[in-house]
Structures are given as C-alpha cells and as structure tokens.
C-alpha cells in the first residue's frame, strides 16, 4: 500500500434536473419531460428501427432475433440475481425446456406457433420451477452450483434415454410466417417484459422479492413464505427463458441438445455484467454489444467463447458496475474535484 495522502476527492452531486424530475414536477416543462423520456425512447426507437435499418442484410436481421432471445435470458438472470437473490448459472435449462416443449407441441399435435409459444412459456416456466423447487432453500454459491448442473443433467438424461429424438433433436418444427413477424414479435416482447419488470420490482411484490434477497429472516418474520416467493421469482424468470427458447426452436425450425449448451448460460451472465446488474435495461444493452461480437467471431469457432469469457472476466474484476450504471451516473450526476 502506498501511503500517498490524497489532497482532493471527487464529489458527486445530483443534477438539478434529475431532482426536479423525480416527483410530479416532471411534467412542469418540456425539458424535464424530455430528460425523462429521451433515454427510454432511444432504446425503444433504436430497437424498433433496427430491422428496417438492416433490411439490406438478412443475416444481421437474424442476429437481431438472437439478440432479443439472449436479452430475454439476460433480463431473467438479472431479475433473479439482483432482485430475488438467486444466482442461476443455468440459463440453458430454460431455453432448452422451452425449445423442446414448443417443438414437441408443434410436431406432435400440429399446433401453430402462436399457440405453442405461449403454451411453452407457461408450461416451461412451471416445469422449470418444479425442477428447481427442491433447491430453493439453498442460497448463494450453492444455488449457483446446482443450477449450473441442471442443464447438463437434463441434456445427459435426454441423451441417455434417447427420448425426444435423442442426439438428433426434434426436427421439422414450423418456422414463422415471415421474418418481420419473428423480429417484431421478439422486439415487442423484450420491450414489454423489460418495462413490465421495471414496474413490478417497484410494486409491493418487488419489495418482497428484494426482502428475500437482503434478509429472508425478516421476510419470514413478517409471515410471508420465503420459498413461495422464491418459486414465484423463478417462475417469472424461467418463463421468460422458456419464451426465448420456444421462439428459438421456431426460428431454427429445430430443437436439440445444443440448446442446453453453455452459450445460453454464459452469454446472458456476461451481458448482465457488462451492461450493469440490477438495472434490467443493462442486460439488454450488454446483449446488443456482446451477441454481435460473438457473431463476428463465429468463423473462429470456440475462440468466441474464450473471448467473451475474457470480456466477462475483465468487466467483473475491473469495472463491475457495468455500462448502464456508469451511464446513468453520468447522466444524472455531475462530478467535481474538491480540496480536502
């Protein structure tokens, strides 16, 4: 440790406009309204414009859909980790379960995609919650380890029992009627869930969720069953993941073991860390950055996993607050050096 005494420190103060827009006074002028609305419009408008801007590049339009699916997963990870306090390293479980349910409903019962996707969301969420139910009393590292094992376990069991097409997967799933439908449905779903969840975590239920995370004894003492609340949180998160998985299986017209693969567990976590945990919008931004990088590196095979593992590692060690937190701090506060 160097014993250099700093003679100045950095002071952070909220901008006046931030304070004014916190309350009802937000509607007092266009400037205040714009201050609140512009960042949100930027994200919404940007996402909605993206397919049109990329209409000359069909390959990158597919990437948009993939970004949205990863975003769903990343939001669900962020929600579980930072609002319910369950770090789930096995996002692949949700994707896989959702994909298989949608694919099976489609190929065996001939249901169209606008029925299979919602059904897979609900059924898949329920199934994942049931699977994870016994592990819900666990906390922290232990839940993380168990949840990491689950997708591996399910994939092995499918492989070993040779059910659902075994290693070949379920083939011949219907695609979407057009790529515009697929992209805009996904974008709309991501935006709805993003803003819906931001609402939810500030409601009473969100308060209970955060109580479970910060001090579950206090929640228990208030006469609320911790396990039920955790199960509800897991249901919400896994339903989002299953929705992504169901869309994915219709997108690729296929469901297979690779949907339980590592990619789906690690990219959302990396995106959350890069984008900023606990913000819900951060993970989406993280996905918008990381997934295209991973697509660019597709030619290098498994190097891309190495690359985003390193990005993840760098961010978590050196810049653990993430882009979103950093950005909103710059947006809402000004900093200056003051002499001590």
């Amino acid at each position: 440790m160097e014993a250099v005494l700093e003679s100045r420190r950095k002071e952070r103060l909220d901008r006046g406009i931030k304070v004014r827009t916190d309350g009802i006074y937000a509607v007092s002028s266009w400037r205040e309204i714009a201050y609140l609305v512009l960042p949100r419009l930027l994200l919404i408008g940007g996402l909605l414009m993206m397919p049109l801007l990329l209409s000359q590049a069909p390959y990158w339009q597919r990437v948009i859909s993939i970004v949205c699916i990863y975003s769903l997963l990343a939001i669900s990870f962020d929600f579980l980790a930072h609002f319910v306090g369950l770090v789930s390293l096995g996002g692949a479980l949700y994707i896989g379960v959702g994909a298989y349910i949608a694919a099976l409903l489609n190929t065996h019962f001939g249901l169209p995609s606008w029925i299979t996707v919602p059904l897979a969301t609900i059924l898949g969420g329920g199934l994942c919650t049931l699977l994870l139910w016994p592990c819900l009393p666990l906390r922290g590292v232990y839940f993380a380890i168990v949840s990491l094992m689950f997708p591996l376990l399910v994939a092995r069991i499918i492989e070993a029992l040779d059910i659902f097409g075994g290693t070949d997967g379920v083939l011949g799933v219907d695609g979407f009627s057009s790529k515009w439908v697929e992209m805009y449905v996904l974008i709309a779903v991501v935006l709805l869930i993003l803003f819906g969840l931001r609402r939810l975590v500030n409601e009473d239920l969100g308060l209970v969720f955060r109580g479970v995370k910060d001090n579950d004894q206090a929640v228990k003492a208030s006469g609320i069953d911790v396990i039920t609340i955790k199960a509800l949180g897991v249901f919400i998160a896994s339903a989002m993941g299953c929705l992504g998985g169901a869309m994915l299986s219709h997108l690729y017209m296929w469901a297979g073991l690779s949907q339980f693969a590592l990619d789906f567990s690690i990219i959302p976590i990396a995106a959350t860390v890069v984008g900023g945990g606990g913000t819900l919008a951060g993970p989406v931004i993280g996905c918008l950055i990381l997934v295209p990088i991973s697509e660019l590196l597709r030619d290098f095979g498994t190097l891309r996993i190495a690359v985003y593992a390193l990005i993840l590692c760098g961010f978590i060690v050196f810049k653990s607050e993430g882009l979103m937190v950093y950005g909103s701090r710059k947006y809402q506060q000004f900093e200056r050096w003051v002499q001590i």
């Binding site: 980790a81 770090v87 390293l89 922290g140 590292v141 993380a144 380890i145 590592l262 690690i266 976590i269 990396a270 860390v273 290098f300 095979g301 498994t302 190097l303 996993i305 190495a306 690359v307 593992a309 390193l310 993840l312 590692c313 978590i316 060690v317 653990s320």
Partner: peptide
C-alpha cells in the same frame, strides 16, 4: 458470486482457447 463467475470465465477462456 463474482469469484465463481470470474474463475469459471477464466477456466472457460483457457479451455476454449486450447480447443481453438
């Protein structure tokens, strides 16, 4: 949690780097 994620990420980077 950061310890798990970071060490797992290092491990992944080494393994997939070797595979590449």
């Amino acid at each position: 949690i950061s310890e798990i994620i970071a060490s797992y990420a290092i491990g992944l980077a080494i393994l997939e780097g070797l595979r590449w």
